[in-house]
Amino acid sequence: MPRRRRWTDELLTRRSPLIDMAQFVVLAGALIWLGMRGAQSMGYNWQWYRVPQYLYRVIDGEFIKGPLLKGLIVTLEISAYSLAITLIIGLITALLRLSQSFAGRIIARTYLEIIRNTPLLVQLFLFYFVLSPVLGIDRFWTGVLCLAFFEGSFAAEIIRAGILSVPRGQWEAGSSIGLTRFDLYRDIVLPQAIQLMLPPLTGLAVNLIKHSAIVSVIAVFDLTTEGRNVISDTFMSFEIWFAVAAIYLAFTCTLSALVSLLEHRLARSRR
């Protein structure tokens, strides 16, 4: 085990894991059975066979995207655009917080406190009902901007921590050979800080995909909205919600696995 050993590890039993796995399977089976029975008592008609056509269809050898797949693409688009803007906002905020300018620090602090102390949903409504008519931006970009400003507050702290973790000697050495502050950041500090920032920033991408579901509230056609539309057309609430959740899970779990891989690598390279 590459993981650091904790004292609770010593409490682990030597019993065969098969028994426990069997217990787990039985419990999961029982839960599924209970759910199915509950659905049946409601007169729910399971129609799993109808789900794939809402993902994609092949007609005459031609691949046609279904609503869920289209929604997934929009979700990924939103996440990608907001991730890019998040990084810019985060970097600017982090640099302002570390800068010598008092106005910069005040603005960065105000931004962070406002974002941290209000719910994402209320921020979305503020963006949608206030900012979007004032600036004349459409729903898609309203959603992207709102998510970017929200995640930007987390990115700022990650980037700031990364920058501060670069040893002081590096700064002093850089400035003693006559680098300007800009060159110092670009050539010495940020390249070293990025290594440290990479795992938490990937975690941020996971959060971004998760939180992007909230734009369905302002009727951006992402995966969640498309799922709700399909449900109102077909009344297959359970099947479609489970399918939607599974799609989200597939993406977030893959990225989460990447995070632990990166952390693992980092821990090894530092040893």
Partner: peptide, 25 residues
Amino acid sequence: ISRKLFPRLLSRSYVELIRNIPPLV
């Protein structure tokens, strides 16, 4: 942190499931 695998599997899947699904969904 239980000694047995079963409770660990149970709580781990609860935590991972909820942390990886959008709150809205």
